[in-house]
């Protein structure tokens, strides 16, 4: 695709990945761990949006909710029910933690769909912290709640005796792959969608192709709106599933 573009016109320039560059907000220079960057900016906007919906929107504590309050209530009920359905009643005390993950991912994804914005969840550094955070917390919960019997998660008592060690090894590997797939799934989906939109936008420079290109951008954008919600949902429900494994390791 890129080579085609090269041959077609000299005016055609692709920077599909420039949107992911982390830069300092003020001036140039090296990025230290504390430097306010566009990451900082968009995470702050996400936090402010969450505060706007969940704190200012519910300010009235109305029995008959306002629009914003009912949005907050629907999200609350959705995640609460998901945790209760997947992990059972003893998972409910981790509700604030799971809600934090869900809201951060959801708002970052949707804010990232604004033109010229920056999407923190498209960065593997961010999603890996989220994914490995879930992995470490869930594993700790598993050992704290069940002690050594948490290892029963890998030992299929109802499978044939000869296969059990083999299955245990496979289960162990799949358990350690979980955080990797968990984080790459999110970053990959978000990054790919944004990059594809940028590629199509690059083609819009050619007058003959631009209508097709713009239609394609609209279509991909619609798809990305779906993906943004679905990936937040998938991340959250997988967190719930892992949490369920930690709370009830015996199948």
């Amino acid at each position: 695709m890129a080579e085609e573009a090269h041959s077609e016109g000299s005016g055609l320039v692709f920077h599909p990945l420039d949107q992911f560059i982390v830069k300092p907000l003020f001036g140039e220079g090296p990025i230290h761990w504390y430097t306010p960057t566009n990451v900082t900016l968009w995470m702050t906007i996400a936090v402010l949006c969450i505060v706007a919906v969940f704190v200012f929107g519910t300010r009235g504590r109305a029995i008959i909710p306002t629009r914003v309050q009912s949005v907050a209530e629907v999200i609350y009920g959705f995640i609460y029910k998901m945790i209760e359905d997947v992990t059972g009643h003893d998972g409910v005390k981790y509700f604030p933690y799971i809600m934090t993950l869900f809201l951060f991912i959801l708002f970052s994804n949707y804010l990232g769909l604004l033109p010229t914005s920056f999407t923190p969840t498209s960065h593997i550094a961010v999603t890996a912290v989220l994914g490995f955070g879930v992995f470490i917390i869930v594993t700790l919960i598993g050992f704290v709640k069940n002690g050594a019997s948490f290892l029963g998660l890998f030992w299929m008592a109802d499978s044939p005796a000869i296969l059990r060690p083999v299955i245990a090894v496979i289960e162990l590997i799949s358990y350690f792959v979980r955080p990797v797939s968990h984080s790459i799934r999110l970053a990959g989906n978000i990054m790919a969608g944004h990059a594809v939109i940028k590629v199509f936008a690059g083609f819009a420079a050619i007058a003959a192709i631009s209508p097709v290109s713009i239609l394609a951008i609209v279509a991909i954008y619609g798809l990305e709106v779906l993906v943004a919600g679905i990936q937040a949902y998938v991340f959250t429900i997988l967190t719930c599933v892992y949490l369920k494994d930690a709370l009830h390791p015996h199948h």
Binding site: D18, V22, I31, T37, M43, P120, S122, H123, A125, V126
Partner: peptide
């Protein structure tokens, strides 16, 4: 840019803050 490790501490720090 995702694999530019020099930005990782920055992102992780601000993510944890958020």
């Amino acid at each position: 840019p995702q694999l530019d490790f020099s930005t990782f501490p920055n992102q992780i720090f601000w993510l944890l803050v958020a």
